[in-house]
Nucleic acid binder design. Structure first.
Lengths: 253, 253
DNA sequence: TTAATAGTGTCTTTCAGACACTATTAT
DNA sequence: ATAATAGTGTCTGAAAGACACTATTAA
């Protein structure tokens, strides 16, 4: 350090590390065994790792790792996501810092928490990391009922709050949907994240009102005809895709 | 460190500090010299400190300082705000982390940036800190045209983006207003932060529409009569206050 | 035929947007 | 009287909210 410049911060205690923790959400879908075509059962799940080293050995924890001097915390989170789950090129977003003294028995650790939103199929070939005894997808309710390592229960709670807010105010629903989707699928994804969500005339609001219809658009065949899918229903449903328009909300207008 | 637990992070390079940087916004108001009563000229300003130690000596910088092991980054920001400006009990909110390698010549510093919103009068008795040559309020446009220390230009740009977003989606306008205010003042505060903001029938939207009128309420005298003020106009204007209701916005409803 | 989902018709009430208009009162 | 701000009247068209109704088609 540059002592010739009269810099004194190095005389003080410095952090023992800058870890990242990644809350990886996915929505699983499972067919109902009704025989007929129907909408799947969807569940919001998150990926946890069972620790096999001290501290909190045996406890479930968020994936993550220590930031290196040569990278940003965002790069660290992306690297750890890749190393621990084999996933890259997904939505991964910083959301909060956790710095409560004593939160990590290993020392003074200020942790940076990220939110990753991953489609189910991307996680199918996931693999355990070298320092994790096990990797598993758990329902959010399950995960929160476990005794988690560190302050990860708090982090997950905050992440859940954040994803619920963003589901209604941004177009992150697209992170859980295929490129082309039906209005029924979109509605289900929103409800999976926010169970109390209910909009009576959802299809109209999202397709027919001036201010909102800009966020999604109808998909057409090469021939120009409207493209539809009967994956979930007898009657085929119109397919939509998200545009790149992000609506600006305001409480004053 | 607990080497007996086989913990190896201490073998790695650790950060040289966890500083906080605080972007302190205020709205100044200045009377127009028209003789008659009129709305003041309001300006969005921020508080900067001129550095008197290496690095970036002489350059303008955000107030802030190093987090201690015994405190959270939020507590550090609040402490530094108090030490450097004499201000406490104001809105101060974490908004982002800055970790680009090389951002600080003193070493590996991961900085936590806060947004503070302060009423003008609270800053009147501000005082220079022990390690700052000068403290000054600058217009945002001025501040951004200066050569700032570290990556503080980027941090201020991000803070400005954040405050503009929050001005429209939350009730932070109250941080710049007295407890009781007129619709004209509220409108001015919003316009000071977002110059392009314009709502033709603002007074009606904010007072008469079902979904929005919950965010402010009329102030009454002890006698029960509506309370008004003629501070800015010949004709007295109704006074309002914010309720504690925070509206939930949604792009889907 | 039925189950399951997709989508429409229609009515009422509320809101948005425009803009001319009236109200108040210190100077 | 005037300047400066506060606030209302009124019209149009769009959207919200409710809810019954029709449409499609594999099984």
């Amino acid at each position: 350090m540059e002592d010739e410049h009269n810099y004194s911060a190095s005389n003080y205690r410095t952090p023992d590390g800058a870890p990242t923790d990644i809350v990886i959400f996915t929505i699983t879908s499972r067919e109902r065994e009704s025989g007929k075509k129907s909408l799947p059962i969807r569940e919001l799940q998150l990926l946890l790792i069972q620790r096999k080293v001290w501290p909190f050995i045996g406890k479930w924890a968020l994936p993550g790792g220590f930031t290196r001097e040569s990278e940003t915390v965002q790069e660290c989170a992306e690297r750890e996501l890749l190393e621990e789950t084999g996933v890259s090129d997904v939505h991964i977003e910083y959301f909060n810092v956790y710095s409560m003294p004593g939160r990590d028995p290993r020392g003074w650790m200020i942790s940076h928490a990220f939110l990753a939103l991953v489609k189910e199929d991307v996680l199918l070939d996931r693999r355990a990391s070298v320092d994790a005894a096990d990797v598993r997808l758990l329902r959010v309710s399950e995960a929160l009922s476990l005794e988690l390592a560190f302050d990860h229960g708090i982090i997950i709670g905050d992440a859940l709050h954040k994803i619920r807010e963003k589901m209604l105010t941004t177009t992150i629903a697209k992170e859980f949907l295929p490129e082309e989707f039906t209005i029924g699928e979109l509605y289900q994804v929103i409800q999976t994240v926010i169970p109390e969500f209910e909009e009576k005339n959802f299809i109209r609001k999202v397709t027919s009102t001036q201010i909102r219809k800009g966020i999604i658009e109808e998909v057409r065949e090469e021939t120009g005809e409207l493209k539809s899918s009967n994956k979930y229903s007898q009657r085929a449903a119109q397919l939509y895709r998200f545009t790149d328009y992000e609506p600006q909300l305001s409480i004053y207008s």
